[in-house]
């Protein structure tokens, strides 16, 4: 969706036009869900937080001024909800869901990057993707958050640094460290 289209959609959504609100949910739900799923590691939690994210958006849409990127606001809400949930879980002493199980769960619902018509390559890609997903799940919360925000929100690192309230240098260093760790993990398991 181009910027003018998004402006128009947001204008109608602010006027509480049901069709515009539905389009907004449909347009962003896959990316927001992807982020929430990778951060919470369970489909149920990601679905709950997806709904909560959009409810918060619609409640605050009247006050939202479309000066920055809408995505920055949307993904900030989603990331904050996931962070609050992780914090609450830690306080309760609840076990963090195992990444492997959730990646298996995602296999049924997700799509993989394999090329159509090349089953062997598809299998390799799928295997590599699952290893990568397991490696992402093993990163620290802060490292995981920054690279997943970049991957799903498509915001620049500068915008992500704003979303997270950290200097750009800190955001970049954190992402660089996370990616180095992922590469290392993947290399170790080859």
């Amino acid at each position: 969706m181009d910027e003018a289209g998004l402006d128009e959609l947001l204008r109608r959504a602010r006027a509480r036009d049901p069709e515009a609100l539905t389009r907004l949910v449909e347009f962003y739900s896959a990316r927001v869900f992807g982020l929430l799923y990778r951060l919470t590691r369970t489909r149920d939690a990601a679905e709950d937080l997806l709904q909560e994210t959009f409810l918060r958006v619609v409640r605050a849409l009247g006050q939202y001024e479309h000066v920055g990127k809408f995505e920055a606001w949307l993904f900030r809400i989603a990331a904050n909800l996931a962070r609050d949930r992780a914090r609450a879980q830690r306080r309760r002493g609840a076990a963090v869901p195992a990444g492997d199980r959730d990646v298996d769960e995602a296999r049924g619902a997700g799509q993989h990057a394999g090329r159509p018509g090349d089953p062997e390559q598809g299998l390799v890609d799928r295997e590599q993707g699952e290893r990568l997903a397991r490696a992402v799940a093993r990163l620290s919360d802060a490292e995981r958050e920054i690279i997943l925000l970049r991957h799903y929100s498509e915001l620049s690192f500068r915008e992500i640094a704003d979303v997270l309230g950290v200097p750009l240098g800190t955001a970049l260093a954190r992402a660089h460290r996370a990616l180095a760790r992922l590469r290392q993990e993947l290399a170790d398991r080859d």
Partner: peptide
């Protein structure tokens, strides 16, 4: 991260 499997609701 392009190799990360897509997950959709």
């Amino acid at each position: 991260l392009r190799a990360l499997p897509a997950v959709t609701p």
